[in-house]
Nucleic acid binder design. Sequence first.
RNA 1: GGGCAGAUGGCCGAGCGGUUAAAGGCGACAGACUGUAAAUCUGUUCUCUCACGAGUACGUAGGUUCGAACCCUACUCUGCCCA
Length: 428
Amino acid sequence: MNLIDELRWRGMIQDMMPGTEEQLLKEMTTAYIGFDPTADSLHIGSLVPILLLVHLQKAGHKPIALVGGATGMVGDPSGKSEERNLLSEEVLQQNVAGVKKQLEQFLDFNTTRPNAAEIANNFDWFKNFSFLNFIRDVGKHITVNYMMAKDSVKKRLEGETGMSFTEFTYQLVQGYDFYYLYKHKNCKLQMGGSDQWGNIVTGTELIRRKAGGEAFAFTCPLITKADGSKFGKSEKGNVWLDSSRTSPYEFYQFWLNTSDEDAARYIKIFTFLSPEEVNEILVQHKGNEYQRKLQKKLAEEITAFVHGRDALAKAIQATDLLFSKETLQIIATLSHDELDATLTGVPAVEISREKITAESPDIVTFLAETAVFASKGEARKMVQGNGISLNKQKVSDVSAKIDLSSFIHNKYLFVQKGKTNYYLIKAV
RNA sequence: GGGCAGAUGGCCGAGCGGUUAAAGGCGACAGACUGUAAAUCUGUUCUCUCACGAGUACGUAGGUUCGAACCCUACUCUGCCCA
């Protein structure tokens, strides 16, 4: 299978410019994707573009990951119904550094290879590009009529929030990136999410008009969930690639909870499994959905890709322990150190032993103090609503007292909020 | 610079002098059912309080009134139109 065939099979191609496939078959092609430095870590929404670059490199082409130090200063209006707030320069620089570091994990930068990956920051070519020069050199080639026809612009003109000149300019800035990379890196292909199509096409247009060159593009569909809710959110918010923000355990859990319908699509998109392997899993899954082999495989593959095999092993250990029917019995057989090691990544809170002995607080106070809940009121509602378990035992009595005897090994207390959210409380 | 419209809880959106902590929807969380799914049904969803209750809140600051999200004034911000 060639690259495009494979990506098509995986469901990763939405739109493609004519000639793209031929270009990729003809020669080693340099291609790029831009990443927005809106935070100092990428989240799983960026996983698809990352994977596109990885697939591209595996197919023998040369990937460039572009960090938008400059475009991040402007703000992409695509898919946004409102004007964005500008990030300060310091924040932006931190973010660029963080994002860069993460991207480096996923691609092969070994310069002995002809298709070694590269990282670029568009701030490098924009920082000394004056406004006047920009509007003369770049702006002159694209008509306002053309720019206004873009969906991202049209929507905002029709909407009621309007659009600043800054964001209106965005497509030109990004378009120039493509032109610049075309000129200086012989980069002929840009990829991205389907929301980027308009911006990308402005780039190819600029290359055509300004350089008389031909450049190509394809986009992948935005990841959706079958129930229509937003992909990439857990009850704690974004799912990040940075393990200090979202632990491998939480990351693994996120994927494990994918619905059947979604998982069947995701396994093609987010893993490198071959069609045969995927088919086999789908066949095994059918009729045995309760075993959730599909979700497990999905979670394993992605967690290993992002966090490595060791982290995956720990995530599975913790999962097996917490969601087992014999959690308590197993724990009884483990030493403190073994427990600590097994439960890496499970949200943990420490509380002083003296405090518990001295106060033996009621469960509501206790849960509020250990930060499982923000307030007593919230904790109370949840206990009354039958949503809290201590050491796997439902507790619905608001006045229940907590003392050291509640702790396993005199040290560990498992608080469960709902069915799936565990907090480990350690008495120290 | 001038005219017009608007600013309500995480979001959308009703309310237009007392019965409004503010309809409805979305989102979020929980319960039931299940497979740690999905769909469905139920409950919760400003803060504090065991609770009775209390405190804040409808862009900001004043004012009118027994009483204001609702009326008046000024200001701020947003959009539209004109110059």
